[in-house]
């Protein structure tokens, strides 16, 4: 006989130390869930709110953009940025709704990993978008009439120096944002990859 079989009986007949009554169970199911997917969705919402708030607090100087000829570009950037965030919030919500605990563990984890993929794309597209917007803006500004005299003053190596600073600054901003994203979303889904690998390990 399987030496583990004797444990089955013990396992199946184990008692509960502190069983909960109906009242406590009723209260329990109405508490808030703390599941990973819900938090990914909430974090994306919070982030959207934060960006929106930031835009409200710091007024956009559209006239300034006009003088540099960036007016239409910045409007495009804003519209595209909001549309992108809203699209991803919708995708996060869809993922959140699609995840069902009563499907198989593998399917459930696959769904959660899909959410992770959505997060990855969200971060990547956001970072590329920000880097491009900043780079293009500086390009237009440096080529504007106002900066022409400054460029001449800086001499031969001036533009190279200026661009080096700009590129460094952009990389710094993108780097900080990457760290921020990795920290928040990375923490939420750290354990899953390992579990999924364990589950799907081929024979």
């Amino acid at each position: 006989m399987d030496s583990l079989s004797k444990y089955k009986e013990v396992w199946q007949n184990q008692g509960i130390e502190n069983p909960l009554d109906k009242n406590s169970l009723n209260k329990l199911i109405h508490k808030r869930s703390s599941s990973i997917v819900k938090w990914i969705f909430y974090v994306s919402l919070f982030e959207f709110g934060f960006v929106l708030l930031l835009n409200l607090i710091i007024p956009t100087d559209w006239e300034q953009y006009k003088t540099y000829g960036l007016y239409h570009f910045m409007i495009g950037v804003s519209v595209f940025g909001y549309a992108l965030t809203l699209l991803f919030i919708f995708l996060f919500y869809k993922n959140y709704k699609n995840i069902s605990v009563h499907e198989s563990t593998k399917d459930l984890m696959q769904n959660i990993l899909n959410t992770r993929k959505t997060v990855k794309y969200y971060i990547l597209i956001n970072l590329i978008f920000i880097a491009f917007a900043l780079f293009y803006s500086f390009y237009v500004i440096f080529n504007s009439e106002e900066y022409e005299s400054l460029m001449t003053k800086l001499g031969e190596n001036g533009p190279i120096l200026l661009w080096s600073i700009v590129v460094f600054a952009i990389l710094f901003v993108v780097g900080i944002m990457f760290l921020f994203y990795s920290l928040i979303y990375g923490l939420l889904i750290k354990k899953l990859n390992k579990n999924y690998k364990e589950l799907t390990e081929e024979v």
Partner: peptide, 18 residues
């Protein structure tokens, strides 16, 4: 059986604490 599935799924993949 259904309860086991949901409970295990929650413990394995939905539970946030690690």
């Amino acid at each position: 059986t259904w309860m086991y599935r949901v409970a295990l799924n929650t413990a394995i993949s939905l539970y946030r604490k690690s």
